[in-house]
Amino acid sequence: MEKHLLVFPNRCTGCNRCVYACSAVKEGLFMPSKARLRINNFPQQGYSVPSVCFHCPKPDCLEACKEGAIFKNERGVVVIDAARCTGCGDCVAGCPYGMIEQYGSGTAYKCDLCGGNPACVAECHFGALVFKEPDAVLRRLRGQQMKQRSRNGGADDKRHALAVAILEKAVRVPRTTGYMG
């Protein structure tokens, strides 16, 4: 069983340390706009939803890429071969979660789980991001999150759509004390 990057929105404080860490590791500077994961903050509702790449079992991005630049490696990680990427943006449109974006040159980038040691998880002090092999309960949680697919708008809109769906569910089922995910 592969390890997955799992998200527990109820525990997220919205501090964005994961995002800062990601950009530092991947870009060498603190630049959230180029991070491979994002936090959708809803401060008024006191809620935050991390957006991460699910490394889907059947990745839409992989199917969308005509160049064969996206593949799943032997450990189940969906990665981009930048050398083969032509910058067409089909994968960006293809990903229903908004987790692939492009540099100014067009080259696409996404989460690669830092080779099995995600920097974001190490910076999460509230357990909102966890990297582990999911049990049945966690698989269900992941499955529910993955259901919130969106085809409209840019990467940002899709992430927001998923985050709002999760937020609404959390608000609809009133959070009570002790309900921390």
Binding site: N10, R11, T13, G14, C15, N16, R17, Y20, P43, G46, Y47, E123, H125, F126, R175, T176, T177, Y179, M180
Partner: peptide, 17 residues
Amino acid sequence: SVKIGDRACASCPLGCG
């Protein structure tokens, strides 16, 4: 007893909110 979540400022691992 009425808290339903922790909140933090950007880059803060304490999350005092």
